[in-house]
Amino acid sequence: MASAPATPAPAAVAVPTASPATLLRLVVIVAAVGALEIACRVGWVPMTIVLPPSVMAESLWQLLLSGSHTRDIVVSFSNVAAAASLAVVLGFLIGAILHTLPPVRGAVEPLLASYYAVPTFMFYPVFIILFGVGSGAIIAIAVLLAIVAMITATLNGIDRIPLVLGKTARMMRMGPIERALKISLPAALPYLFTGVKLSVAYAFIGVIASEFILSGAGIGHAIAYAYNNFDNRTMYGLMLLIVLAVTVINAVLDTIDRRLQARLRR
């Protein structure tokens, strides 16, 4: 065929793995950690305020080995998982239903756009009344934080399904269910996943922050407890755990996100 380029397309719309920027980013992070380590060791930063990163890592290692905070860790992560799953499922359902009811959507959408301006967190005490101190109230406030991101992403995803795909489904004489599963869902998936990514981040923030303010268990609670008892070793060890966990989860979700986005047309 005359117009076909001779070389096949590249194997994948690859995520650059070792670009100069990635390498440089690694160098910057290592340098920052190294600088903090030196600043602490030399005494420019008093150990009573910040511990050297090596001590944080050591502390984290020890508290993981000793199992002293295993219960807190399990509680926090299962709360995040529960809140994120609930937010994703409910958010998707609400978004999909709102999409079929344009008048309701028109009334709700301006509020959704302003939703994150409200410090939802101030309503945490209300959930404590409703559910008592514990996982119920924490999951509820985390869902409340995370769900709107998923609703918005669902609405956006359905909006962005190209009209021509709907026409194509009709030409193939698909029923509504087959069309939803084989056309609408895969077409909207990249946008839905953005919602999933945000929901996980917000669920994390909601859970850890609630544990921090008022709770009897969880990593957030353990950090606050350690802070109040001047136990900097435990405090920094757990902080490192959160930072690492968020970074890893983000990186994984981001990789999937990029793969999905690469499918969308340029």
Binding site: P162, L163, V164, L165, K167, P186, A187, R265
Partner: peptide, 14 residues
Amino acid sequence: VGVVFQEDASFPWL
């Protein structure tokens, strides 16, 4: 009857 549309109707996920 088959139709080819002006807009790109290929499925990006396949």
